[in-house]
Amino acid sequence: MKKSRFLLAGLAAILSLLWGWTARAQGILPDATAEPGVVRFILFYSETCPHCHEVMENYLPTVYEKYGDRVEYQYVNIHNNVEGYKIMLGLERSLGVPEPDQGGVPALVIGDQVLIGGADIPARLEGLIDQYLAQGGVDYPSLENLPTVVVPTPAPSVQVLVFLDQADPSFQELSIFLVTISQQYGSGFQPYAVDIGNSEALQSLARIHEALGAAPPAAGTPEVLIDRRLLVGLDQIKAELPGLVNDYLARGGVALPNLDALVAGTAVPAASPTPAPEASGQAIYMA
């Protein structure tokens, strides 16, 4: 089990979701009648979870291509969706998932089985589909009579994007500084690193500069985006980031910005991450 805190790789998924990535469905479940020869399952995910996007974008499409109309599915985003999160926990509890494993995403419910994590889903899903097809198919799990779930009120947290170049001389000092802040604030500070050594990240950063009217700094200069505020260079980051974290925590925290909204000049709401089984309210991402 991994808690995403300071991610130094694999953030293409983060960028894609921040630029308006959408899933197939946002509802909980459609009205559906079981059909023979069809296997149905639900995938619970968080839009800020890299492991979820790896499964959704790279693995599950191969499953849909393999099985065609013999498989039907629904995706439920639990990010800032308390009802969806409670349904996920209720299903996990009713199906006997051990308490320490509950609440992690991605979580896929198929028949009476719950697959949790970016490794478990690819390892087991197709075998279960074959098993249920041999039995004549299986419908979506019933949401009736689920156990009552009480979701704790999440503590405020501050999520930031950290644009950095691991080849830049400031990288080591910046990393130590961010780790120090993470130790100070715990789950109240959640940095997500984006390596500007790749072209996609550079293009995203260029759009942010344009939207905020900021001049691009020298190549490799680290930058931190917190809400609509861009801190440029190690000196400014070290001087201003701790105070900004304190300010935003006092106001209830702030989530990762939606970059489409940022460029369009629309409001970016302050919000805490998805509630999870801990008091911190930080989602658990399962590898």
Rank of each mutant, 00 (worst) to 15 (best):
V160R: 02
L95G: 07
Q102W: 04
P98M: 11
L178Q: 08
Y75F: 12
R40C: 01
L91F: 08
L230F: 06
L17R: 15
A214I: 09
A12V: 09
L174H: 14
K3C: 14
I284D: 07
P154L: 00
D227M: 06
A34L: 11
L11M: 15
E83Q: 03
L29F: 00
N80E: 13
G213P: 01
I78V: 15
L234C: 14
G213Y: 03
T148Y: 08
S199A: 14
A34V: 10
M286S: 09
S204Q: 01
I28S: 00
P36S: 15
N77K: 04
S4M: 15
L174C: 11
N77F: 02
L15Y: 02
G84H: 00
P273F: 01
I176N: 14
G137E: 13
G118H: 00
E200F: 09
G137M: 08
K3Q: 15
Q190Y: 07
V71F: 05
L128H: 07
M286H: 09
I28P: 02
E99M: 05
P277R: 00
V149W: 10
Q135P: 09
A214G: 01
T48I: 07
I121R: 03
L143M: 08
A206F: 01
S142H: 05
E92R: 06
I14V: 13
D168F: 13
D195F: 12
D69I: 00
G117Y: 01
K66V: 06
G118Y: 01
L60R: 06
R228N: 01
V268M: 09
P275L: 04
V82E: 14
G281Y: 03
L17A: 15
P141M: 09
Q135C: 06
I181H: 13
R93E: 13
K66R: 15
V55A: 07
Y192V: 14
W19H: 12
E210L: 04
A283M: 11
W21K: 15
M1G: 15
K3R: 14
A25V: 10
N198R: 11
D112A: 07
P98Q: 11
R40Y: 03
G252V: 13
E240G: 14
L205C: 02
Q113T: 10
N80G: 10
P216Y: 00
S170W: 09
E126T: 11
I116V: 15
T221Q: 07
L205R: 03
P98L: 11
A134W: 04
N198C: 10
D227Y: 10
